[in-house]
């Protein structure tokens, strides 16, 4: 059972020691990773995915339950503790959705019946239905992303979940975050989206490749997050209307801000 993941600080882009020297993330916690583009968010996520042992550019070290992971832990997908949803939105594999999921289920030691479940779940996250016989490479950005989310949730069902920006992909991001985080997992989500950021328990602020500080989400922010969700719903509604060729005549702003 994985109860805790620890990040031991390394160096930023300029070779300076990063200000945050230690981060402990406990089971059931959701951490955000925020910061401008190029501030090192994806690198931090990559360090955790590889369970870095001072062997990456940042020289960070990752402990699991206060211990160094073994080589097997780090490399064998059947033992892998980390599921990652990366920023890359397109599949390069030249095969059908069904073949791809079957192969991946085999790699992870998951049952073949997962394939159907993944496609079903993916189709709840995206507007355009995905079929088992579709070629991976022709899927749209939204379909690819939905399939990746469902694959991470069902086939790579791991205790540590890393999510690199789900907002850019035209899928239902709140549902996606819920599907991915499950219960009793350690979740880290890279985001530029204030709503997602305020849904987390704490957020690591990145700058120049280093962990700058850790902000704990305040109770007031949690309340604000709910207000923001209403604005988001409004925007989603409008987006759907625009997509379907409707004319926007009125925006119901009333009651959005208190």
């Amino acid at each position: 059972m994985i109860k805790k993941v620890t990040i031991l600080g390394g160096y930023d882009k300029f070779g300076e020691k990063e200000p945050v020297r230690r981060v402990d993330i406990k089971r059931g916690e959701i951490f955000g990773v925020v910061g401008p583009t190029g501030s090192g968010k994806s690198s931090l996520i990559a360090d955790i995915e590889q369970l870095a042992q001072r062997d990456t550019f940042s020289k960070r070290k990752i402990l699991v339950n206060d211990k160094e992971p073994t080589y097997e832990d780090r490399t064998n997908p059947r033992k892998k503790m980390v599921a990652q949803l990366s920023q890359n939105m397109n599949f390069l594999a030249d095969m059908t959705v069904g073949e791809f999921l079957t192969l991946h289920a085999k790699c992870r030691g998951a049952h073949k019946s997962c394939v159907e479940k993944v496609i079903k779940l993916a189709n709840t996250l995206t507007g355009e239905p995905i079929k088992e016989g579709h070629d991976l490479t022709i899927l749209s950005g939204g379909q690819s992303r939905a399939l990746m989310v469902a694959d991470v949730a069902i086939i790579s069902d791991s205790p540590i979940v890393l999510i690199d920006e789900i907002e850019n992909a035209g899928i239902r991001k709140h549902e996606a975050l819920e599907v991915l985080s499950g219960h009793g997992k350690i979740v880290m989500v890279v985001t530029h989206d204030p709503i997602l950021a305020l849904m987390t328990d704490k957020r690591i602020v990145m700058k120049n490749g280093g962990m700058q500080k850790i902000v704990t989400t305040t109770p007031h922010e949690k309340e604000l997050s709910e207000e923001l969700s209403k604005i988001d719903d409004l925007l989603l509604n409008l987006r759907d209307k625009v997509r379907h060729g409707e004319i926007i005549e009125d925006i119901q702003l009333k009651g959005l801000t208190s």
């Binding site: 990559a46 997908p77 990366s86 594999a93 192969l103 991946h104 085999k106 790699c107 991470v152 790579s156």
Partner: peptide, 14 residues
């Protein structure tokens, strides 16, 4: 490997 998804990386390895 950083250019592709984790799932594709795992299949490649297999």
């Amino acid at each position: 490997g950083d250019m592709i998804s984790q799932a594709e990386r795992e299949i490649f390895r297999e």
